[in-house]
Design a protein around this nucleic acid. Structure first.
Length: 265
DNA sequence: ACCCCTGTTCGGCG
DNA sequence: CCGCCGAACAGGGG
């Protein structure tokens, strides 16, 4: 589920807890979402701390608490954040819950591909600094894109658009949406993209990211009806422009839909 | 029953 | 050594 805009939506679901203390932490310490971190430290450190603010970068989120306590969250395939009334009893897949006086902040993740990290220190954790530039930032420009495409010149462009170091926050549906709008056939090797296609790739990546944030970020509304996403999961999906059948295949290990009329090598 | 999956990581291999 | 690809992870839904 979660790419850039959905991540931003879920980040805000914990806003009702801002400024308030964590009373208790409920978690399942053996679950895979805690791989690489010691969940007992979270249970020991977070109670009594106030939730100060949160950040989103691509598909990653960071939650800051007083006393230099930081929680990093990644939603994986099926992670969701929500708020429940005080006294909430965690259900089967609610693996990480921060109980506050007035509400409970809940991380649910059925498939456990998501991840919870913990950091203590005055400033942000080192792993938060890593990763590619935000698509909305000035650093995501023609120069950066050229270098990234050339570094992965032998990979199909679809696989490259899914790489988080270059296309921060882009996931499978946004990648197909971008390539369809840019008129690029998804199996083309990144290094073989023409200057014209590179310019369109940059423009449409920015467009799809900003539009998705605008439409989905605040309320999880549907993208406009003429977007490819509404067609790509249908068995008989059609190109929104030509109304002809989309082609389906696997690229970069992921299901891919494209329109042979719109998208060329 | 069986197949599919909006993500990431890791081992194999060219 | 670099980098791509498929498998694995785990569970719910069609």
């Amino acid at each position: 589920m979660p790419e850039l805009a959905e991540v931003e939506f879920f980040r805000k679901q914990w806003d009702p807890g801002l400024g308030q203390k964590v009373v208790t932490v409920q978690l399942h310490p053996r679950k895979r979402i805690f791989r690489g971190t010691d969940p007992r430290k979270i249970v020991e450190s977070l109670p009594g701390r106030r939730f100060l603010r949160s950040y989103a970068r691509g598909k990653r989120m960071l939650f800051e608490f007083t006393g230099g306590n930081w929680i990093g969250l990644h939603l994986g395939m099926t992670g969701k954040l929500r708020t429940e009334p005080a006294g909430f009893r965690p259900e089967k897949h609610d693996h990480f819950v921060l109980q506050q006086t007035r509400q409970a902040l809940v991380f649910r993740d059925a498939r456990l591909f998501g991840r919870v990290r913990f950091h203590q220190g005055k400033s942000e954790p080192a792993w938060w600094r890593l990763g590619g530039p935000e698509i909305a930032s000035a650093q995501f420009d023609r120069h950066f894109l050229d270098a990234f495409l050339n570094r992965h010149s032998r990979a199909p462009i679809k696989a490259v658009v899914l790489m988080q170091d270059g296309f921060s926050g882009i996931g499978n549906w946004m990648a197909d949406e971008i390539l369809w709008r840019a008129g690029i056939e998804p199996s083309v090797r990144a290094g073989e993209l023409s200057a014209r296609h590179r310019a369109r790739l940059l423009r449409e990546t920015r467009f799809v990211a900003s539009e998705a944030l605008r439409v989905i970020g605040p309320a999880f509304a549907d993208p406009p009806p003429d977007w490819l996403i509404h067609q790509k999961w249908k068995r008989a999906g059609v190109c929104p422009r030509h109304k002809s059948r989309l082609r389906k295949g696997t690229l970069g290990g992921r299901t891919t839909a494209w329109c042979p009329l719109c998208q060329k090598k």
